[in-house]
Design a protein around this nucleic acid. Sequence first.
DNA 1: CAGGATCCGTGGTGATACTG
DNA 2: CAGTATCACCACGGATCCTG
Lengths: 137, 137
Amino acid sequence: MAIEDRMATIHEPRMHAMCGHDPEEAELFRSVLSRIGDKWSVMLVGMLHDGPLRFTELKQMTSGISARMLTHTLRQLERDGLVEREMFAEIPPRVVYRSTPLGKSLAVPVMAIAEWASAHQSEITGNRDRYDARDDG
Amino acid sequence: MAIEDRMATIHEPRMHAMCGHDPEEAELFRSVLSRIGDKWSVMLVGMLHDGPLRFTELKQMTSGISARMLTHTLRQLERDGLVEREMFAEIPPRVVYRSTPLGKSLAVPVMAIAEWASAHQSEITGNRDRYDARDDG
DNA sequence: CAGGATCCGTGGTGATACTG
DNA sequence: CAGTATCACCACGGATCCTG
């Protein structure tokens, strides 16, 4: 049995989610995909995976992010329950963010994507270069 | 050993990709994430998983998509080598799209995300409702 | 039939300045 | 320190009309 056929058989029930057959589940699925597809969420969840970090630490580690987007992205992650925010009533203020069990569990399938990307890196870049070099279309 | 610790240990090398330590790999990773995070790509790859389909068939199955976005998304998928396009010189024209082995292989980790979303559906929606109902912040 | 061209609204993202 | 407020930009996505 070919690998593609096994994949289709094993995961057939889940394929419907990808195709949007169940409207509710499809909407949740899409909301999750768009979250991990945004510019900073995965990077932040990854950074918080090993332990809590302060706002400024996250900002320094995440090269290129603005304070505005860091705040905004952390709020979204907090809303989904992927990240917890703890604020200390001190002067100067101190806020630490930590990954929740849900956030850590998300890291598993996300890293499956990372491994897929790594495994097919040259194939993908090759495809893109070939496509961009085409003169037809 | 706790599940979180095992996850961190097993996948630790890949965590760096999520955090963007290797610039090249991080860029590829981000491009893959943003592709599967866009509105239609995953749905189209899912639909083509079981066999080739024509442009109009895809448009009818993908409720709500515009011809413009269908064309555009298929071009992107074709560029990455996730989808193949075959045009027949007939009148009226006929174009079929089919998933490539690369596209079918991507379905595996993507469905891991789908299963994660399904498994944590109530937890996520609960978190969101609770967050939205908060009066602080 | 399978698109291309064009216009346009919205939302994501960054830059800058300001604040408790 | 950890944000908020404001402005500006542009890519994403939809609507409409046109074509080989």
